[in-house]
Amino acid sequence: MASRSIFAVLERVADLVAALSLALVALVTAAAIVLRAFGANLPDAIDFSSMLMGVMVFWAAAVAFRHDDNVRVEFLGSVAPPPVRLAIRVFANLVTAAFMVLMAVAGERQFALVLRSREVTPELRFELWPFAAVAWAGLVLTALMAVALALGWFSSRHRRSAPGDAPGRPGHLVGQGTLHGE
Protein backbone atom coordinates (compact mmCIF):
# COMPACT_ATOMS: atom_id res chain seq x y z
CA MET A 1 0.00 0.00 0.00
CA ALA A 2 1.44 3.35 -1.04
CA SER A 3 0.34 5.26 2.04
CA ARG A 4 2.14 2.75 4.23
CA SER A 5 5.45 3.37 2.54
CA ILE A 6 4.94 7.13 2.73
CA PHE A 7 4.55 6.88 6.48
CA ALA A 8 7.59 4.63 6.68
CA VAL A 9 9.63 7.29 4.86
CA LEU A 10 8.22 10.08 7.05
CA GLU A 11 9.10 8.06 10.12
CA ARG A 12 12.69 7.65 8.99
CA VAL A 13 12.96 11.36 8.26
CA ALA A 14 11.52 12.19 11.69
CA ASP A 15 13.93 9.81 13.40
CA LEU A 16 16.82 11.34 11.49
CA VAL A 17 15.92 14.97 12.28
CA ALA A 18 15.36 14.16 15.96
CA ALA A 19 18.51 12.06 16.33
CA LEU A 20 20.70 14.66 14.63
CA SER A 21 19.26 17.41 16.84
CA LEU A 22 19.94 15.38 19.98
CA ALA A 23 23.49 14.58 18.85
CA LEU A 24 24.09 18.28 18.27
CA VAL A 25 22.73 19.17 21.72
CA ALA A 26 25.18 16.72 23.32
CA LEU A 27 28.10 17.93 21.22
CA VAL A 28 27.40 21.65 21.68
CA THR A 29 27.08 21.17 25.46
CA ALA A 30 30.31 19.17 25.63
CA ALA A 31 32.14 21.64 23.38
CA ALA A 32 31.09 24.49 25.67
CA ILE A 33 32.69 22.71 28.66
CA VAL A 34 35.90 22.01 26.77
CA LEU A 35 36.16 25.57 25.48
CA ARG A 36 35.48 26.96 28.94
CA ALA A 37 38.35 24.87 30.30
CA PHE A 38 40.57 26.62 27.75
CA GLY A 39 39.23 30.03 28.67
CA ALA A 40 36.97 30.53 25.69
CA ASN A 41 33.24 30.97 25.25
CA LEU A 42 31.10 29.08 22.78
CA PRO A 43 28.72 31.82 21.68
CA ASP A 44 24.99 31.15 22.04
CA ALA A 45 25.63 27.53 23.09
CA ILE A 46 22.59 27.38 25.40
CA ASP A 47 20.36 29.15 22.87
CA PHE A 48 21.23 26.80 20.05
CA SER A 49 20.96 23.66 22.14
CA SER A 50 17.59 24.78 23.52
CA MET A 51 16.19 25.37 20.06
CA LEU A 52 17.54 22.01 18.88
CA MET A 53 15.82 20.36 21.84
CA GLY A 54 12.52 21.84 20.70
CA VAL A 55 13.10 20.47 17.21
CA MET A 56 14.05 17.08 18.62
CA VAL A 57 10.93 16.81 20.81
CA PHE A 58 8.43 17.76 18.09
CA TRP A 59 9.91 15.47 15.45
CA ALA A 60 10.32 12.58 17.87
CA ALA A 61 6.70 13.06 18.97
CA ALA A 62 5.67 12.24 15.40
CA VAL A 63 7.35 8.86 15.76
CA ALA A 64 5.69 8.33 19.14
CA PHE A 65 2.30 8.66 17.44
CA ARG A 66 3.40 6.53 14.53
CA HIS A 67 4.03 3.70 16.99
CA ASP A 68 1.19 4.60 19.35
CA ASP A 69 3.85 4.89 22.02
CA ASN A 70 2.30 7.45 24.34
CA VAL A 71 2.02 6.95 28.05
CA ARG A 72 -1.52 5.93 28.96
CA VAL A 73 -3.27 4.67 32.07
CA GLU A 74 -4.18 1.11 31.21
CA PHE A 75 -6.55 0.47 34.09
CA LEU A 76 -9.81 0.20 32.15
CA GLY A 77 -8.05 -1.47 29.25
CA SER A 78 -7.09 -4.35 31.49
CA VAL A 79 -10.57 -5.04 32.87
CA ALA A 80 -12.99 -4.14 30.05
CA PRO A 81 -14.17 -6.76 27.53
CA PRO A 82 -12.39 -6.57 24.14
CA PRO A 83 -15.15 -4.73 22.17
CA VAL A 84 -15.36 -2.03 24.87
CA ARG A 85 -11.57 -1.84 24.93
CA LEU A 86 -11.51 -1.26 21.18
CA ALA A 87 -14.20 1.41 21.37
CA ILE A 88 -12.34 3.21 24.15
CA ARG A 89 -9.10 3.15 22.20
CA VAL A 90 -10.76 4.48 19.05
CA PHE A 91 -12.40 7.26 21.07
CA ALA A 92 -9.11 8.16 22.76
CA ASN A 93 -7.23 8.27 19.47
CA LEU A 94 -9.86 10.47 17.82
CA VAL A 95 -9.88 12.95 20.70
CA THR A 96 -6.09 12.98 20.70
CA ALA A 97 -5.87 13.52 16.94
CA ALA A 98 -8.35 16.40 17.05
CA PHE A 99 -6.35 18.08 19.77
CA MET A 100 -3.02 17.56 17.99
CA VAL A 101 -4.47 19.23 14.89
CA LEU A 102 -5.48 22.19 17.04
CA MET A 103 -1.97 22.27 18.51
CA ALA A 104 -0.46 22.29 15.01
CA VAL A 105 -2.76 25.19 14.05
CA ALA A 106 -1.65 27.06 17.16
CA GLY A 107 1.93 26.21 16.22
CA GLU A 108 1.51 28.24 13.05
CA ARG A 109 0.68 31.26 15.22
CA GLN A 110 3.87 30.73 17.19
CA PHE A 111 5.94 30.42 14.04
CA ALA A 112 4.36 33.56 12.53
CA LEU A 113 5.07 35.38 15.78
CA VAL A 114 8.76 34.45 15.77
CA LEU A 115 9.02 35.39 12.09
CA ARG A 116 7.39 38.77 12.70
CA SER A 117 9.40 39.48 15.85
CA ARG A 118 12.73 39.22 13.98
CA GLU A 119 14.24 37.84 17.16
CA VAL A 120 17.88 36.74 17.07
CA THR A 121 20.31 34.86 19.32
CA PRO A 122 22.01 37.23 21.74
CA GLU A 123 25.64 36.82 20.74
CA LEU A 124 25.86 35.75 17.11
CA ARG A 125 22.56 37.48 16.26
CA PHE A 126 21.47 34.45 14.29
CA GLU A 127 17.77 34.63 13.33
CA LEU A 128 15.45 32.33 15.27
CA TRP A 129 12.73 31.82 12.68
CA PRO A 130 14.41 28.91 10.82
CA PHE A 131 14.41 26.90 14.05
CA ALA A 132 10.79 27.83 14.70
CA ALA A 133 9.93 26.71 11.17
CA VAL A 134 11.61 23.31 11.55
CA ALA A 135 10.02 22.78 14.96
CA TRP A 136 6.58 23.68 13.61
CA ALA A 137 7.05 21.28 10.69
CA GLY A 138 7.66 18.55 13.26
CA LEU A 139 4.46 19.50 15.03
CA VAL A 140 2.50 19.33 11.77
CA LEU A 141 3.95 15.89 11.09
CA THR A 142 3.02 14.84 14.64
CA ALA A 143 -0.58 15.94 14.05
CA LEU A 144 -0.60 14.05 10.75
CA MET A 145 0.62 10.89 12.47
CA ALA A 146 -2.01 11.31 15.20
CA VAL A 147 -4.75 11.60 12.56
CA ALA A 148 -3.43 8.60 10.65
CA LEU A 149 -3.32 6.58 13.86
CA ALA A 150 -6.89 7.56 14.76
CA LEU A 151 -8.19 6.67 11.29
CA GLY A 152 -6.46 3.33 11.41
CA TRP A 153 -4.15 4.00 8.47
CA PHE A 154 -1.24 2.20 10.04
CA SER A 155 -1.28 -1.55 9.59
CA SER A 156 -1.12 -3.34 12.92
CA ARG A 157 2.33 -4.62 11.96
CA HIS A 158 3.59 -1.10 12.51
CA ARG A 159 1.84 -0.67 15.80
CA ARG A 160 3.38 -1.97 18.94
CA SER A 161 -0.06 -2.07 20.48
CA ALA A 162 -3.17 -2.52 18.44
CA PRO A 163 -6.45 -1.73 20.21
CA GLY A 164 -7.05 -5.35 21.07
CA ASP A 165 -3.57 -6.05 22.35
CA ALA A 166 -2.89 -7.34 25.80
CA PRO A 167 -2.53 -4.49 28.27
CA GLY A 168 0.66 -3.72 30.03
CA ARG A 169 3.09 -3.40 27.17
CA PRO A 170 6.04 -1.29 28.13
CA GLY A 171 5.25 1.00 25.23
CA HIS A 172 2.27 2.60 26.90
CA LEU A 173 3.02 2.16 30.48
CA VAL A 174 6.46 3.41 30.94
CA GLY A 175 6.51 6.91 32.31
CA GLN A 176 10.13 6.85 33.30
CA GLY A 177 11.40 5.98 29.87
CA THR A 178 10.54 3.33 27.37
CA LEU A 179 12.94 0.82 25.97
CA HIS A 180 12.55 0.92 22.25
CA GLY A 181 14.16 -1.11 19.57
CA GLU A 182 14.59 -4.13 21.78
Binding site: A18, A19, S21, A64, T178
Partner: peptide, 18 residues
Protein backbone atom coordinates in the same frame (compact mmCIF):
# COMPACT_ATOMS: atom_id res chain seq x y z
CA UNK B 1 24.94 5.03 17.99
CA UNK B 2 22.21 6.09 15.60
CA UNK B 3 19.88 3.52 17.09
CA UNK B 4 20.68 4.74 20.61
CA UNK B 5 19.95 8.33 19.58
CA UNK B 6 16.65 7.36 17.95
CA UNK B 7 15.55 5.37 20.97
CA UNK B 8 16.47 8.24 23.29
CA UNK B 9 14.50 10.74 21.19
CA UNK B 10 11.38 8.58 21.25
CA UNK B 11 11.57 8.07 25.00
CA UNK B 12 12.24 11.77 25.53
CA UNK B 13 9.28 12.73 23.35
CA UNK B 14 6.86 10.73 25.48
CA UNK B 15 8.27 12.33 28.64
CA UNK B 16 8.08 15.82 27.14
CA UNK B 17 4.46 15.31 26.08
CA UNK B 18 3.64 14.70 29.74
Amino acid sequence: IGGALVETCRTSASIFLI
